[in-house]
């Protein structure tokens, strides 16, 4: 079986139109071409290189777990309910991956979802969420907060 793997997968790819992607953790995943075509970075490569689909396309910045989530999101036509099951880490991973893969629709969708998550949260929550170091001096921060005190009224608990 091993010997003919390349030829076989090539034949299969032509039949069901799939492209094999290789994730950062070394997992090969066959993905429908309609989904792959949303990934500008892969699409442009396939189109230019006359597509030998038997060669897995490497995605060194995307884990298999993240790619699974992305495929499910696209298959479910960006279902809000499905995304609500994501952890914060998963949201961030999909965001970074969508940006790397250059998936415009997914990027808008995930950016909206993260905006919705952050909209009633405190400054401290946002810093934790994005792992940001506060580089303001306490005086500078107090000064900025003072100019718009009204935006800090009754926020969600972190």
């Amino acid at each position: 079986m091993q010997k003919t793997e390349g030829e076989e997968s090539k034949a299969e790819n032509e039949e069901v139109k799939q492209v094999t992607l290789m994730t950062s953790d070394g997992v090969k995943m066959k993905v429908e071409i309609s989904i792959v075509y949303e990934m500008e970075i892969v699409r442009s490569f396939i189109e230019v290189n006359d597509a030998d689909h038997s060669v897995p396309f490497p995605l060194p910045n995307v884990s298999s777990h993240t790619l699974d989530l992305i495929i499910e999101l696209v298959k479910n036509e960006y279902d809000d309910e499905f995304m609500k099951t994501f952890s914060h880490d998963e949201l961030k991973e999909v965001l970074v991956a969508a940006n790397y893969l250059n998936m415009k629709t997914l990027l808008d969708f995930i950016a909206t979802a993260i905006a919705n998550l952050l909209e009633k949260k405190s400054v401290e929550f946002i810093r934790n969420f994005f792992n940001i170091v506060n580089d303001f001096t306490p005086e500078e921060e107090a000064e900025i907060r003072k100019t718009n005190e009204w935006v800090f009224q009754d926020l969600d608990e972190d």
């Binding site: 905006a115 946002i126 810093r127 303001f136 935006v151």
Partner: peptide, 18 residues
């Protein structure tokens, strides 16, 4: 892109992050 989807009060808050 993310910040542009926020309501105004949240944008002001984001300006205090860093």
């Amino acid at each position: 892109r993310i910040l542009a989807y926020l309501p105004i009060a949240s944008i002001f808050r984001a300006g205090c992050v860093s």
